[in-house]
Nucleic acid binder design. Structure first.
Lengths: 209, 209
DNA sequence: GACTGTGAAGCCATTCACAGCT
DNA sequence: AGCTGTGAATGGCTTCACAGTC
């Protein structure tokens, strides 16, 4: 799986496609065309075909794609043909919500640990997980081979926490704090900036079209 | 405020810039160059200048930008020189976390109501807010002039809830459910797909670079 | 006849590079 | 000398359009 340069937008859409295809699969549909996928997720059919073509020839001309097969390909491409262990730093409202979010588990992500530096939270439980102090970070990452870290702490601490995650050996970070953070080469970073999303809406409302 | 066609990426960056500039302002810094902003948020200086130039000439050649002035311009451009009333549908873990998220309030978004159809949740409180049934949607939107709706319900109900928000008169929707939803022209939609973000990380880990 | 896979064209965002101002 | 504002060049993603296949 070493295609040359795949647009990030393509990878994001593959994730969307995969969940739509999964939905179709559950409905018992067996074959689908790029046009139907396109309609289902709101893009053009050419886009769907181009995205898939980066990774191989999954369809049959004149027919379309077999739902089950395509789903398998997509999950493999996305690296979801295995489970990933995840650690969350920050057991505030957001961190707790993420820890309990069923959607992650359903897609193969297992929250192995939730850490916080607040004495009052340490020892309390979130579902099956007991909140632990930051000191156990390195240990948990090693013993559970955790590759993914989630940063759900206030902006002021996000860089500090990120550095610790990196030092512990985490290779991918999902940052929910509204602050730009730096990671070294070899570590992948994605930001989910909740305020930014609302502010883009605000912009659109204000420049009212 | 009716610039012709602004890239969405530009608007997203303006939101980032504005928070970085705010940070500088709090540190007492008075003047800043595009290069310094660029370094602070991780883009190129040309990008910063181009983004700002869509909206006017805010800087002084040879000098840079006055922090206070630029912040004012950015907030005005983003429509954050006023407060926006927001309604959240879904009082699960995520909806509750969003309702209590201080970051929204700090940027001018006020959560006016949280609705859910679960009898057990209705009547319970989230901070200052009492969870109410979906039936009050139209009433709340009217009386508080709510323009922004947040969808934090399971995928199966997201389109239904969205239709109700639109019918009630909401003009912008932030969707947290992992399902593609449709809105009519004149309503702005943004999606925050938590699983998608993790899956892009998974993709990057799997095609390991 | 229907639909995929794909080179070419089109379009849009980013980067370059420099004139213009302080 | 330093930095902004901007037309031109570049690069990259999306759309077009059609040959290839069933």
């Amino acid at each position: 799986m070493k295609a040359y340069k795949i647009p990030e937008a393509t990878v994001m859409r593959l994730s969307i496609y995969s969940r739509y295809i999964n939905q179709l699969q559950n409905e018992g549909i067996e074959t689908i065309s790029s046009g139907q996928i396109a309609e289902g997720v709101g893009v053009s059919s050419a886009q769907v075909r181009k995205d898939l073509a980066y990774f191989g020839e999954f369809g049959t001309r004149g027919v379309g794609y077999k739902v089950g097969e395509l789903y398998g390909h997509l999950m493999k491409i996305l690296g979801l043909d295995r489970r990933w262990n995840v650690i969350i730093i920050g057991a505030g409202k957001l961190g707790s919500a993420l820890a309990l979010y069923q959607g992650f588990f359903d897609r193969g992500f297992e929250i192995c640990a939730v850490l916080d530096d607040d004495e009052k939270k340490i020892g309390t439980r979130l579902g099956d997980i007991t909140i632990e102090p930051l000191e156990v970070l390195k240990e948990r990452v090693k013993e559970r081979d955790i590759k993914v870290g989630v940063v759900a702490v206030p902006a002021a601490h996000s860089q500090d926490v990120t550095d610790k995650l990196v030092a512990a050996g985490v290779k991918a970070i999902l940052n929910f704090s509204p602050r730009v953070i730096q990671v070294p080469l070899g570590v992948t970073l994605r930001n989910v900036d909740l305020s930014m999303n609302l502010e883009v809406l605000s912009y659109n409302l204000a420049s009212n079209r």
